[in-house]
Computed example of a mutant assay.
Amino acid sequence: MNLKEELQQLNDKLDKFRRKLAVAEQRGDAGVILQFKREIATVTKRIGSIKGQQDRLLNKEGQDIKNLPFKRELTSQEQANMGQLKKTVKDLVVVHPMTKLGRQMGLTKVTGYAPSAF
């Protein structure tokens, strides 16, 4: 299971536990309330751990891309004909500024990274 799926499952569990906690608080069942509060705390801690792991992986990927020897912003014509550009430039990595990776790298324009000039 990848991190995204695990994070989604944990968020679903957290939502379920919060709903059950609300029902238990309406009933005034102290034992069940305490149990669900512990469950919520453990799931929240695990969610934080997974988000931290995702951030580390994203930072590592961003550094790997930034270490490629050649980079430049892509023109609108190149962006429109992306298939042809990727066929002509070997190992081209295109990063859009609105993706997670693009925001993490601080990009403002669509940028191409490659091991050789293009």
Rank of each mutant, 00 (worst) to 15 (best):
Val95Tyr: 05
Ile65Phe: 12
Val95Arg: 01
Pro97Arg: 09
Met98Val: 05
Ile50Gly: 00
Lys16Gln: 12
Val93Trp: 05
Glu73Arg: 03
Glu78Cys: 14
Lys71Ala: 08
Ile50Pro: 00
Ala30Ile: 15
Arg56Thr: 01
Ser76Gly: 08
Leu74Arg: 03
Glu78Lys: 01
Gln54Asp: 01
Glu61Tyr: 02
Met98Asp: 06
Lys86Gln: 07
Lys20Thr: 14
Leu101Phe: 06
Val93Phe: 04
Leu21Glu: 13
Lys90Ile: 00
Glu78Leu: 03
Leu14Glu: 10
Gln9Val: 05
Gln79Arg: 13
Glu61Phe: 00
Leu21Thr: 11
Gly28Asn: 04
Lys100Ser: 12
His96Gln: 09
Phe70Thr: 06
Val43Ile: 11
Val95Ala: 10
Ala30Cys: 12
Lys87Val: 10
Gln84Gly: 08
Gly83Ala: 11
Leu14Asp: 14
Arg18Cys: 10
Arg56Ile: 00
Ser76Trp: 03
Thr42Asn: 07
Lys20Gly: 08
Gly62Ser: 03
Glu78Asn: 07
Gly83Leu: 05
Leu92Gln: 11
Gln26Val: 07
Ile47Met: 04
Met82Ala: 04
Lys60Arg: 05
Ser76Ile: 15
Lys71Met: 14
Ala22Pro: 12
Asp64Cys: 04
Glu78Ala: 02
Val89Ala: 04
Ile33Glu: 06
Glu39Ile: 10
Phe36Glu: 08
Pro97Gly: 06
Gln8Cys: 09
Val89Phe: 00
Lys100Arg: 14
Ile65Val: 04
Phe17Ala: 05
Glu78His: 14
Glu78Ser: 15
Ala41Arg: 13
Glu39Val: 05
Ala80Val: 09
Ile65Pro: 01
Leu57Arg: 05
Leu74Phe: 06
Ser49Gln: 14
Lys37Ala: 04
Gly31Val: 11
Lys13Gly: 01
Leu58Gln: 12
Thr88Asp: 07
Lys13Asp: 02
Ser76Tyr: 10
Leu68Phe: 03
Arg72Lys: 07
Pro69Ser: 07
Met82Phe: 08
Leu57Met: 07
Gln63Glu: 14
Lys90Gln: 05
Asn67Thr: 11
Ile40Phe: 13
Leu21Val: 09
Gly62Met: 00
Ala22Met: 06
Leu68Thr: 02
Val94Phe: 11
Asn81Pro: 02
Lys37Met: 02
Ile50Arg: 00
Asp64Glu: 15
Glu25Val: 15
Asp91Trp: 01
Lys45Val: 00
Ala22Cys: 10
Asp64Gly: 03
Gln79Ser: 14
Asn59Thr: 08
Lys87Thr: 15
Lys87Ala: 15
Lys71Pro: 13
Asp55Arg: 07
Val89Pro: 01
Gln84Val: 09
Arg38Gln: 06
Lys45Trp: 01
Lys66Ile: 12
Pro97Met: 08
Leu14Phe: 06
Val23Gln: 15
Ala80Arg: 07
Phe17Ile: 03
Asn67Cys: 13
Leu101Ser: 02
Gln54Leu: 01
Pro69Phe: 00
Gln53Lys: 11
Lys51Asn: 12
Gln35Ile: 06
Lys45Ala: 10
His96Asn: 11
Ser76Val: 05
Thr42Ile: 15
